[in-house]
C-alpha cells in the first residue's frame, strides 16, 4: 500500500499491562493498585459490541493491543501505518479520581511502562504523556519529566471534567505543554464518571448509545471555553487535539461562535479575530469515528482551511 503521504494512526489503544504498572508504583500506591482500586469507577454504560475491536486475538491466544511486538507486526505492518500514536486504554479515568496524588502516581507509572516496554519495541511507535488534570501542577511536572523523550509527542488527558478546560485552573498544564511544543489532547470515555459532571448538561443519559452520541456536547463546551478564556492568546504555541469526538459538529458551532463574537466580543476583548480563525490555527480533530452522512459530499464543510 504505497501512498504519497505518511499514514499516521493518531489513536491506538494499546493495553498496558496492569502487572507492569503495579511494578512501577511506589508504596502506598502499589498495594492500593494491587487491591483493585484503579480509578473512580464507571457508570455502567454497556456497549453490546465491546469498545475494543473483537477480531484482534493473536494465534497464541493473546490480544493484539496488549503486545508491543504483536501490535507492530499485525497492525502497523498489516495496514501500512508509518507512525502510530499510543493512547493507552485504561488509565485516563484516573484524572477524575477524587484523589489527585494517587492519580498522578498511576499516570506516571503508566508513562514509565510505555517508555520502557512500548516505545522501545518499534521505531514506528510514538506515545502520549498521560496526565491527570485533577491536579494541574503535578500534571505539569509529569509533562516536564517526559518532554525530552523523543517518543512522547503529545499530552493526553480525559475529556470528562469538572470545569471547562479553558479555565485558569488548568493553565499550568498548557504552560508546560506549550513550553515543550507538545499538543494537548483530550479523549472521551470518562464523561460523567468520578468527580466529573454528568455527560450532558441535561443529566445522565440511560444507555451507552445515548451517552456516546451526546459526547459532542462536552467537546463543544471545552472548545468554546478554550477559545473564550484566551488559552491560545496566553499560550500562542499551544495546539489542542480533540480525539475521537467526531468532526461534523465543528462547522455549525464555529458559525454560531463567529456570529456571537460580533455581538459579544466585548466580554472577551483579548479575542481580536473571529473564533473560527483561532480554532483553525490551534485546534485539530481526529477523524475516527467519523460521522457518516448519507452523501460524503456533506463532509466538505469539515475540510480544514487551505494551508492547515
Amino acid at each position: 500500500m504505497a501512498l504519497p503521504y505518511p499514514v499516521v494512526d493518531t489513536d491506538i489503544h494499546n493495553v498496558v499491562s496492569a502487572r507492569r504498572i503495579q511494578e512501577c508504583l511506589a508504596e502506598p500506591w502499589r498495594s492500593r493498585y494491587a487491591a483493585g482500586s484503579r480509578g473512580p469507577g464507571h457508570l455502567g454504560y454497556w456497549n453490546p459490541n465491546g469498545v475494543m475491536r473483537s477480531d484482534t486475538t493473536l494465534p497464541d491466544g493473546s490480544k493484539l493491543e496488549g503486545s508491543p511486538d504483536g501490535l507492530a507486526t499485525e497492525f502497523l505492518g498489516r495496514y501500512g501505518i508509518d507512525i502510530g500514536i499510543l493512547n493507552p486504554a485504561g488509565t485516563l479515568h484516573m484524572g477524575l479520581s477524587p484523589d489527585p496524588d494517587y492519580a498522578a502516581a498511576v499516570c506516571h507509572a503508566e508513562n514509565r511502562v510505555v517508555a520502557d516496554d512500548w516505545l522501545t519495541a518499534d521505531p514506528r511507535y510514538r506515545a502520549s504523556i498521560t496526565i491527570a488534570p485533577n491536579d494541574p501542577h503535578q500534571a505539569a511536572d509529569e509533562i516536564h519529566r517526559w518532554a525530552g523523550h523523543p517518543g512522547f509527542v503529545q499530552v493526553l488527558m480525559c475529556s470528562g471534567a469538572r470545569m471547562p478546560y479553558g479555565q485558569r485552573y488548568y493553565h499550568p498544564i498548557y504552560e508546560a505543554a506549550a513550553a515543550h511544543g507538545l499538543p494537548v489532547a483530550i479523549h472521551p470515555g470518562t464523561e460523567g464518571i468520578g468527580i466529573a459532571y454528568p455527560s450532558t448538561p441535561a443529566g445522565y443519559p440511560s444507555t451507552y448509545f445515548e451517552w456516546h452520541t451526546g459526547l459532542v456536547m462536552n467537546y463543544i463546551a471545552h472548545l468554546v471555553s478554550l477559545v473564550c478564556e484566551g488559552v491560545f492568546i496566553r499560550f500562542p504555541a499551544l495546539r489542542f487535539v480533540f480525539i475521537e469526538g467526531g468532526v461534523s459538529w465543528l462547522p455549525p458551532v464555529l458559525w454560531r461562535f463567529d456570529k456571537n463574537w460580533k455581538a459579544l466580543r466585548q466580554s472577551t476583548p483579548w479575542l481580536e479575530r473571529p473564533p473560527s480563525e483561532i480554532a483553525a490555527d490551534h485546534v485539530r480533530l481526529t477523524t475516527q469515528p467519523i460521522e457518516e452522512p448519507p452523501s460524503s459530499t456533506r463532509c466538505s464543510a469539515c475540510s480544514p482551511p487551505r494551508g492547515c
Partner: peptide, 14 residues
C-alpha cells in the same frame, strides 16, 4: 430477544 444464532456482528463497528 430473538433470532439467536442468526445475526452476525461486525468486529469493527458493530
Amino acid at each position: 430477544w430473538g433470532r439467536d444464532g442468526e445475526i452476525l456482528c461486525c468486529p469493527w463497528h458493530g
